[in-house]
């Protein structure tokens, strides 16, 4: 009997670990430290629009990072600007909440449904219900793995490969006259996550052009500051003459900056630093000249979403994949825009 309780306990732990692992890994867009707004109330049920206003139902993942908060704010603001009535629902990282929200949107007969899926799979049934009800669906930020692509109109989100390419392009441009090898170290995101894989491959694809650009070490920093610092510290010991650091998000870059400073080097001067995301802390470091180049991973996709909603309702054909407009920032540019940044 005792053995069974032990096995049960072990199984329970494994289950809980899987659960917590799934929750903990979701910070791939990093996080700033901007204060969170109180999460919007669940699917605020409003009256059916009598004034002929377009009604948009939006189901958000949650409010897990500064990035996500900025994403929600952008959608709320641009819906207001476009004159839409927005029904905003916060799924608090749970798929069942999101499915519930989608069903309530269908019952309320909204004009368009948009949502950022918490997970990739398990959407076919509810999306089919929306399709049967004749309500078009738009995905934002994250994709679903449904085989039937007619279930949604388009997917608006970042192109991580392109982000990697942009980082690479800037670097190639900086070192186009380099006569001797340029030593690059890379801090990867969580092993196996989409942004880590894509940002790595996009970057490598571009820097291949110049054989002088060599990645001498590449290791995961789990998208966290602590790991970024620890790994960078080891890199600095193992490779005394690093020229460039490429970090897959701002937080790892910020950790690495501390390690570089501890080694008596000047971040941004002795070691050129490139990161992705452009959250507040990262932009602040860039404005201070500690990060040389930031590729933006833009949460402000509200205006593009509203444009897509208009197009869908007007019966226009829209592309099945809309990439968010994303900028890049050098130190000077970061300094100029820092005050106006929303996240």
């Amino acid at each position: 009997m005792k053995r069974f309780t032990k096995i049960g306990a072990a199984a329970g732990i494994v289950a809980v670990m899987l659960f917590t692992a799934a929750c903990g890994g979701g910070t791939n867009n990093g996080g700033g430290n901007s204060p969170v707004d109180a999460p919007a109330n669940n699917a605020s049920s409003g009256e059916a629009p009598a004034d002929g206003k377009v009604v948009l139902g939006f189901s958000q993942v949650g409010a897990e990072s500064g990035w996500r908060t900025a994403n929600s704010d952008s959608i709320k603001e641009s819906a207001k600007a476009a004159g839409f009535e927005l029904k905003f629902s916060d799924a608090q990282q749970k798929q069942e909440n999101q499915i519930k929200a989608l069903r309530s949107f269908i019952q309320q007969k909204v004009d368009v449904i948009a949502f950022s899926p918490v997970v990739e799979s398990g959407w076919d049934t509810v999306l089919q219900e929306a399709k049967d009800a004749g309500i078009p669906v738009i995905l934002t930020d994250r994709a679903v793995d449904s085989k039937d692509t007619s279930l949604y109109k388009t997917f608006i989100g970042s192109d991580f490969v392109e982000e990697g390419r942009r980082a690479g392009k800037w670097l190639v441009e900086q070192f186009k006259d380099a006569a001797e090898p340029v030593k690059i170290v890379e801090l990867q995101g969580t092993t196996g996550s989409a942004p880590a894989i894509d940002r790595k491959s996009g970057f490598e694809e571009i820097i291949k052009e110049n054989p002088n650009l060599q990645i001498v070490a590449s290791q995961t920093g789990d998208f966290t500051r602590a790991k970024g610092k620890e790994v960078m510290q080891s890199f600095l010991q193992a490779h005394p003459d690093i020229d460039v650091l490429y970090a897959h998000n701002d937080d790892m870059g910020l950790g690495a900056i501390q390690a570089i400073e501890a080694a008596g080097l000047v971040p941004g001067k002795d070691i050129i630093i490139i990161t992705v995301d452009a959250v507040k802390d990262g932009m602040t470091a860039a404005a201070e000249g500690k990060i040389n180049f930031i590729v933006e991973c833009n949460p402000l996709l509200g205006p593009q979403l509203m444009q897509a909603v208009n197009d869908v309702l007007a019966g226009k054909e829209i592309e099945s994949r809309i990439v968010t407009e994303e900028g890049t920032f050098t130190s000077e540019e970061a300094k100029a825009v820092l005050a106006d940044r929303k996240y």
């Binding site: 306990a9 732990i13 990093g30 700033g32 430290n33 204060p35 969170v36 937080d251 802390d281």
Partner: peptide, 19 residues
């Protein structure tokens, strides 16, 4: 195990899920 699961939730509550 109770505190292992709940504790991380408390930590996220304290930080509001931000860094």
């Amino acid at each position: 195990l109770i505190l292992m699961v709940a504790g991380r939730g408390i930590a996220q509550l304290v930080t509001s899920g931000q860094i």
